[in-house]
Amino acid sequence: MADPSAALRKQVERLRDALTKDGEEKQAASLTGILKAAERLKEITPSRIERSRAYLSGETLGRNTPVPVDRETAAPLAEIIFPGEIDGTAPLFNATVSQAIGTIVDEWTNFEALATVDILPAKTCLIYGQPGTGKTRLAFWIARKLDLPVILVKLDGLVSSFLGTTARNIGNLFTFVNRYRCILLLDEFDAIAKVRDDPQEVGEIKRVVNALLQNLDVRQNIGFTIGITNHPKLLDPAVWRRFEIQLEIPTPDFEVRKAIAAHFMPPVKAPDSHLRMIAWFTEGSTGAEIESLVRTYKKATTVREEDRPGLLDTLRQFATLNAARIQSERRALLFGEPVHLFRAMRDDPIQGFSMADIGDIAGKDKSTVSRWLGRQANAADDKEVTHG
C-alpha cells in the first residue's frame, strides 16, 4: 500500500467492507487506518508533474485573476480554463500521432531527468490540420495532463481597427501570460501570423507580425506555448521557426474513424457491422464530421419501431444534409443501385465486408444479398458475351 494502484485500493476497500459486514470490526478498522495512511502519503508525495511545474517560473493563476482587456472596447483578450474544467479523455488519433503526442507529455513529466543532461522540454508547439480533426481538444488534453491552466486567446479578437492598438494588445497579453505558470493557447493562429510579404496586407499587419514574433522569442524561455491553425500556408516562415514542435493532425484512418464512432455512440449500442459501415462511409472525414453522423444515427434509433429508418436510409439522410462533408464517390454509391454499393463493400481491398455484414447493414438476409450480387455478376457476363 506504499504506492497502491486504483485496482489494489478497491480490493482493500472491498475486504474492509466484507469484514465490517461479518462483524470483524477490529480488522476492518485496521484496514481503514492503512487506507487513510496511504492517502496521506499520496498527498504529501510530490508527483513528477508537480516537480516539473516547479521548474516553470511565475505565479499561480487564481479564479479571480483579472485578464487584460482591449482599451478601446474593454473586451477581454483571453479566457482562463483550469485543468479541472477540461475533459480528461484522450483524443483519438492513429498510433504514430498518439506516440508523438506522448513524447511531449513524457518530456514534461521527466523534467528532472532531462535537466541532468542540460536538456529542457519543448516549450513551443504548433498544431495544424483540417478543421474538426481535434487540434484544440488535443491542446486542452495536454494542459490537463500537465495540470496547468490554459490562457485561451482568440487572436482575431486582438485585432483592433485603431492603428497601433493591435500590437499593444499583443504586448499586454504576453506581459500577462509571462507572469503566470500556464499554457498559452493561440487559437486561429493564422488570424495574425500571416505572411508579411502578402501584397494585400497593409503595413499595420506587418508590424503586428513583428510584434508577435518578438513576444514569442521572449516567451520561449518562460512557459509553454501552443499555436493552432487550420491554414498553415498563411503562416509567415519566421513564425514556423519559432515552434520547436510542428505537429500535423491528419484526417483519421479507418480504425480511428471506427473508434471515434464507438466513442460517441453510447448509450446507444450499435452492432459492429454498423460501426464499420460508418467508418467506411466517412472516408476522408474529420472526427467532428463523424461525431455529427453518429448523432444522426442515434436520433434515428429513438423513433418508433415502425418508423425507424435503416442504416442506409440514415446515411442517405446525413449525406443529403451534409453533401460537402462526404466524398462524392461514397455519395454516388449510396444513392445509386444498391447492388453497386454492396459490391464495392464486398470488394473493398482493406475492409471487404462479408455477406452477413452487408445483410445486417441493408436489413436483408445474406442469401438475398448473395442473390443480388449473383444476378449482377451474371448480367455483366451476359453483356460481355453479347459484345463479344
Score class of each variant (00 low, 15 high):
Ile249Asp: 01
Asp381Gln: 15
Asp87Leu: 00
Glu201Gly: 13
Arg242Gly: 03
Arg16His: 03
Gly227Gln: 04
Asp360Thr: 15
Leu148Trp: 06
Ile205Lys: 11
Val12Tyr: 11
Val97Thr: 10
Thr282Gln: 00
Asn230Phe: 03
Val150His: 06
Ala377Cys: 01
Thr286Lys: 00
Ala139Arg: 05
Thr73Tyr: 09
Glu329Ile: 07
Leu247Cys: 05
Thr73Glu: 08
Pro338Ser: 12
Ala122Ser: 14
Asn378Phe: 15
Glu107Trp: 13
Lys10Glu: 12
Gly171Asp: 11
Arg304Phe: 12
Arg304Tyr: 13
Leu213Thr: 07
Gly88Phe: 01
Ala261Pro: 02
Leu120Asn: 11
Lys258Arg: 15
Arg181Cys: 10
Phe281Thr: 03
Gly171Cys: 07
Asp313His: 11
Ser354Asp: 05
Glu85Arg: 04
Thr282Phe: 01
His231Met: 07
Ser285Gly: 02
Pro91Asn: 02
Val67Met: 10
Gly164Glu: 03
Leu311Asn: 01
Ile350Arg: 13
Pro237Ser: 03
Asp307Gly: 08
Ser30Lys: 15
Pro271Val: 06
Thr368Arg: 12
Ile245His: 08
Glu39Trp: 02
Gln317Val: 11
Gly310Ser: 10
Gly23Met: 09
Thr136Ile: 09
Asp17Ser: 11
Gly84Met: 01
Ile260Met: 02
Ala95Gln: 11
Ile192Asn: 03
Lys364Val: 08
Val150Thr: 05
Ile205His: 14
Trp372Ser: 06
Pro149Asn: 06
Pro232Asp: 02
Ala324Pro: 05
Pro267Trp: 02
Thr165Val: 13
Ala115Leu: 12
Thr229Phe: 00
Thr368Met: 10
Gly352Met: 08
His263Val: 02
Val339Cys: 06
Glu24Gln: 15
Leu312Gly: 11
Met1Ala: 12
Arg16Ala: 11
Asp190Met: 01
Ser52Glu: 04
Arg48Val: 04
Arg316Asp: 09
Leu120Asp: 09
Asn110Ser: 13
Lys269Asp: 14
Phe335Ile: 04
Ile278Trp: 02
Gln27Phe: 12
Ala139Ile: 07
Pro267Glu: 05
Pro252Tyr: 01
Gly58Lys: 01
Gln11His: 11
Arg181Lys: 15
Val303Met: 09
Thr103Pro: 00
Arg71Lys: 13
Ser285Glu: 00
Val239Asn: 01
Thr45Trp: 01
Ile119Gln: 10
Leu235Cys: 05
Pro250Ile: 04
Pro149Ala: 09
Lys299Cys: 11
Arg9Trp: 06
Ala261Ser: 01
Ser57Gln: 13
Ala167Cys: 08
Leu77Ser: 07
Ile249Gly: 00
Gly171Asn: 13
Arg40Glu: 14
Glu244Gly: 11
Glu43Asp: 14
Leu126Trp: 02
Arg168His: 14
Arg257Asp: 04
Ala74Thr: 15
Ile104Ser: 05
Glu24Trp: 10
Ser47Leu: 05
Leu173Trp: 04
Glu107Thr: 09
